[in-house]
Design a protein around this nucleic acid. Sequence first.
RNA 1: CGGGGUGUAGCGCAGUCUGGUAGCGCGUUUGGUUCGGGACCAAAAGGUCACGGGUUCGAAUCCCGUCACCCCGACCA
Length: 569
Amino acid sequence: MAIKWSKTLLSTLRDDPQEAEIPSHKLMLRAGLIRKLSGGLYIFTPLGHRALRKVQNIIREEMDAAGAQEILMPALQPIELWERSGRANQMGASMFRLKDRLDRTMVLGPTHEEVVTDYITKEISSYRQLPCTVYQIQTKFRDEIRPRFGLMRSKEFIMKDAYSFDVSMEAADDSYKAMYDAYVKIFKRCGLIAKPVEADTGAIGGNHSHEFMALAPSGEDGILDCEACGYAANQERAERKIAGSKYNEYAGEPEEVPTPGAHTVSESAAAVGVPDDQIVKSLIYIADGKPVMAIVEGTRELNECKLRRFLGCMELELADDETAAKVAGPFGSIGPIDVNIPVYADVGLRGAKDVVVGANKDGFHIKHIDLEKHAKITAWADIATVVEGDCCPVCGAPLRIARGIEVGHVFKLGTKYTKAFDSTFLDADAKSNIMIMGCYGIGVTRTVQAVIEQNFDKDGIIWPSSVSPCQVTVLPLDAAKSEECAAATDKLVQELEASGIDVLVDDRDERPGVKFKDADLIGCTIRVVVGTRSLQQGGVEVRVRKTGDSSLVPLDNAAEQIASLLKQF
RNA sequence: CGGGGUGUAGCGCAGUCUGGUAGCGCGUUUGGUUCGGGACCAAAAGGUCACGGGUUCGAAUCCCGUCACCCCGACCA
């Protein structure tokens, strides 16, 4: 199909909008793909919507090919379902709630585990109906604390969410694998480099998950990966090979040292006269309302995600100074000795016999501490954040770090929801069993932007043909004055349409320079220039946006050549 | 919610310190000249200077408050 610029609601911007920070967001606004309604809410313009639909269609094709069935569930849902799963509180303020005219509380669905589980439970009663995977492409609502980067994190976004139901863990593994494989294909077809990594399961729950991370410097997540063995994980859950503390030899009896005015690890280390990593960093957290202490090496970051998972708590937040002082010591001098709250020590501190801790007394630390001997460690746990250069937990090689945009996430949920909804089926022996569930999400709108984040240059977007709003843009330069040019353009566009190629024709009465700049900015995969000059030289100019390579092609061969180029880019 | 920043025409900005009744570039409209990498000339449309209150003869500008948006953190596709 062909669309004419002059008949399309399409305008480009010459300058970067001040509101946008990252390249893809700037480019989407400049190329006229989206317009902002308000914070975290965007309109897809005719052109932007075309790209969005192409991504959706790729997802549909691969979901269907993987045996998933498309359904559509309501965005508006009764709160009761969420109370049943226990997530009404857990989702907290990030779930939009409203009342209907009968004063019943409804929510705008942030996700659909509850609805789908309710539906499937009522629908399926026999093992003969399993396995079953359903999916939908639908708008989700999340009252994000901070929407940002345009479509990257918005209050309303389009998600493809799929849910699998199986008779057993083993069968569920197959369903999971099918979705995982489909995701690999989907992102590849979209022209995205998306890396599957081990991930934290967060509020969705379950015990095992992979995220698909589109690599980009603007990504919100850190990803650690091992070149040697292929291990890859989100920083939220990445592990490291533990060597244990290097301060593992007795060096004397505990001794209080004055460290006046020292609040940070570095200041304390300097005051005591030891390296930073010999200091033990002690942090007080409130876990589901109860104070706990977590300790790590002074040079490491504590990983709240890992701590939360280890503790199995819903809420975890750093205690304020006042609370910390009450249960342990003043800010800057907190330590694990003689405290009456649980102390969780990072495994990196194992074997530490000569470290420095806060004395729980303003302006004092204690040196020569043997953690096992002098502190009551409630449990040793892997709760530190892994950083670049740490050793791979699988093979020991040094880990690398990169940034990634989470475009997809697949979860093995087990029975978290099916138990709550009593989702049972009768097996071949007429015995009742609980279904095993999995869930699988793709941020569709986010994926569109991620494609741009990975495919642009100084002139604009470089669309892969699979998702380009139009595969080809045709620039007639002299159509108004030259009948030959107008006729050649018509012929070419007709032939392209006949070959199933979609075309944007820039039929505006603009100077060539303007058309070139806009074509580069919008970035359709192939650009064709039809001008009197090229026609005199024997044809039209076909240029690949990505490489900049252009060649003069006789009009009669153009459609065919373009079709073949589209397969490559 | 904590920290930082910005609100002046569709977009990008100046003017705010030192109050005097709003300006530039781009875009838009009309006419003309141009026409292969964001042309030129001429004319024009478009602004309750985020909002509310205060100070003042007079406020975009000073004071108080509110809101919106953007960035850094916790949340997530």
